[in-house]
Amino acid sequence: MSTKNMSTKILGIETSCDETGVAVFDEQEGIIAQALYSQIDIHAEYGGVVPELASRDHIRKTALLTEQVMSEAGLTKQDIDGVAFTQGPGLIGALLVGSTFGRSLAYSWGCKAIGVHHMEGHLLAPMLEQNKPEFPFIALLVSGGHTQLVDVKDLGDYEILGESIDDAAGEAFDKTAKIMGLGYPGGPMLARLAEQGVAGRYKFPRPMTDRPGLDFSFSGLKTFAANTLRDCDGSEQALADIAYAFQEAVVDTLMIKCRRALKQTGRKQLVVAGGVSANVSLRNGLNDLMSKVNGKAFYPRPEFCTDNGAMIAYAGFCRYKLGQFESLAIKAKPRWPMSELR
């Protein structure tokens, strides 16, 4: 017997970059099934994401993962109230795969289609945890493509307080790791290497912290790391010390800007989401910061820090409850400011 009218169920599809994620969110039970396929092995040969290869692999995997998730959840198409898909921002080809598949699936299943903003998905990911924030709060969104500080007043009521004017924090991690010869994806490898580093051997700048404002700049740190690497002795310990100094500079910079944002707005809750939010050093630093200001930090579980279908399913559920659906037109928005959300 169909349970469609008993509890809203949303299928979520994520295809914005190099990970194909599918999940089902149930209004009463939360995430009841999910699957994620990473394209790391495909792009590792090139040292970065190749957009055309990413799009082709999404085509191969999206339908298969959808069948898998629906089977694991024990659901049929009659049970699904809406299909949510990442509409942007991201790689245009990858977005078109998810948007076309998701919109077409919703039409064929006779349910609602819901276009989701990728960064709103990250921002709301901590809501999937038992210990979750309440509106309003400050959100630090740190990933390979974005670094933003957002004043989150309510669902859809977002004010961008600051963002990166060049490389995002995750991008700087990956590029620096590549310079150091650490492979792909470089961010997690650099963080692991930093665990062997010694504090104080190298001192990196904290960019844009000597001036007012909440914008970020990380491209200079990448250049500083390249120059430091060129002048070091090339030993394993030197590489670890450089990784430590680089990570310390990024974490300190993010903490300084978060402290400013909290003071500016008077908020006592900080949400940290996106791929870089899994970084242990960053979490420790921000937990310490929030303790000092009598506030609290909230994070997604590690598996929901990187791109995933669960966050899209939940964000889609929130939009479903607001009655915000897509028309028959298939749309993808590679550039989509959060300030344009309702």
Rank of each mutant, 00 (worst) to 15 (best):
L36E: 02
R56T: 10
A297S: 15
G48T: 04
E120V: 06
T228M: 09
S164Q: 10
L124H: 01
L254Y: 08
L262D: 06
Y37T: 14
T20A: 09
E52M: 11
G102R: 03
F101N: 04
S217N: 07
G285S: 15
E303R: 07
E129R: 05
A313M: 08
K9W: 00
A240P: 10
G266H: 10
G47P: 09
A35G: 06
N279Q: 10
P126R: 06
V150I: 15
A172H: 12
A44Y: 01
S339C: 03
A172C: 11
N227R: 13
N287M: 11
D174W: 12
R192E: 14
A199K: 15
G47K: 02
G82K: 08
V97L: 12
R230L: 14
T76C: 10
D157S: 13
F246E: 10
Q78C: 07
A226N: 05
L341N: 06
T253K: 08
W336M: 12
I256T: 13
Q196V: 01
E29K: 15
K222W: 11
G234N: 13
L190F: 07
R301V: 11
I256F: 08
I40Y: 07
F224E: 13
H117T: 04
Y158C: 06
L161F: 03
T176K: 07
K268I: 09
P207F: 08
T8Y: 01
L91D: 07
V142Q: 04
A33F: 08
G183C: 09
S104M: 10
A226K: 15
G285E: 14
M127L: 14
G323C: 06
S291V: 01
V50S: 04
Q39N: 04
L341Y: 06
L91M: 12
L11M: 04
Q28F: 00
S108Y: 11
V276A: 07
L328K: 13
F101H: 01
E326H: 03
G323H: 07
L193F: 13
K263Y: 11
A44F: 00
Q28A: 15
A243G: 12
P133V: 05
G183N: 11
G90D: 03
N308D: 09
P126Q: 03
G47I: 08
